[in-house]
């Protein structure tokens, strides 16, 4: 670690990196995992959502779903490009994991990673119908925004910038979901509430555990700033607000 001491304290004091050549081994590893988790979640999420396009009740809904699928692939590509600068094989990346694979609806993945890819747990669950797709999109969309706002502060500047560009578009995806939700409120209230009950604990698990030692390490590297618990609290409040607006 000796030759990295300078750079480690530089990062701990808020310094930023902008080129792979300056990244110490542990930093590189954690950054790659962070990027892989994002890319895999976008790819798996988009693959699952692609099937929902045909569930859309009208042309408008199908356009919204198509746009979400398109842009999530684009977001994956942007971050994958940065992984490529660290040596990942971007041409092959798409081919190595079965992005459409899902577990049974009632199976419990918990907060674990499954299979070979790094997608967040929530992208292992299948979507059942259009209302379910809309609810999942709103709930996970709110989580994505909070998680991306956190990652957009990370010390690897090219990634932070990529996330800052991605953020407004992910926010728009969530808003498209909210618009859909408003429409479903009258016609399909029961299904919406059932879906919310289904997704709430699963999305909550995507914030990860309370491993304080690991967080301290990531914080020192400037890769994280707020704890998982902190982010989860913010999300809980956002979801409470959605539930309240549905009940009103």
């Amino acid at each position: 670690m000796n030759e990295n001491t300078d750079i480690t304290s530089y990062l701990a004091e808020g310094g930023k990196l902008s080129a792979p050549g300056n990244a110490p081994p542990r930093y590189r590893a954690e950054l790659m995992r962070m990027m892989a988790s994002f890319v895999d979640s976008e790819l798996a999420g988009a693959a699952g959502f692609a099937d929902c396009i045909n569930m859309g009740p009208g042309v408008k809904e199908r356009i919204a779903a198509s746009r979400i699928v398109l842009e999530k692939h684009d977001h994956a590509e942007r971050v994958l490009k940065i992984m490529g600068e660290f040596g990942a094989n971007t041409d092959r990346y798409m081919q190595v994991h079965p992005w459409t694979e899902r577990v049974a609806r009632e199976e419990d993945v918990g907060a674990e990673r499954r299979g070979g890819d790094m997608r967040l747990n929530v992208f292992w669950y299948p979507i059942e119908n259009w209302a379910d797709a809309v609810v999942m999109n709103v709930m996970m969309g709110k989580a994505t925004i909070i998680q991306l706002e956190e990652l957009a502060r990370c010390s690897y500047q090219p990634l932070a910038e990529a996330f800052r560009e991605i953020l407004p578009r992910e926010r728009r995806h969530m808003e498209l979901g909210e618009e859909g939700l408003a429409g479903l409120r009258a016609s399909d209230a029961g299904a919406v509430l059932a879906s919310m009950d289904y997704w709430r604990p699963r999305v909550a698990a995507s914030f990860g555990g309370r491993d304080s030692e690991r967080f301290a390490m990531l914080k020192k590297l400037g890769l994280r700033h707020r704890t998982n618990a902190d982010l989860l609290t913010e999300w809980d409040a956002a979801v409470d607000a959605v539930a309240k607006s549905l009940a009103a």
Binding site: R26, R28, A29, E30, M32, R33, A36, S37, D40, M83, F86, G87, A88, N89, R92, Y93, V96, H97, G116, D117, M118
Partner: peptide, 14 residues
């Protein structure tokens, strides 16, 4: 130990 893809593609586990 660091890893991500476990498929020899991403290089995280180098």
């Amino acid at each position: 130990a660091p890893f991500a893809c476990k498929a020899g593609v991403c290089s995280t586990c180098r």
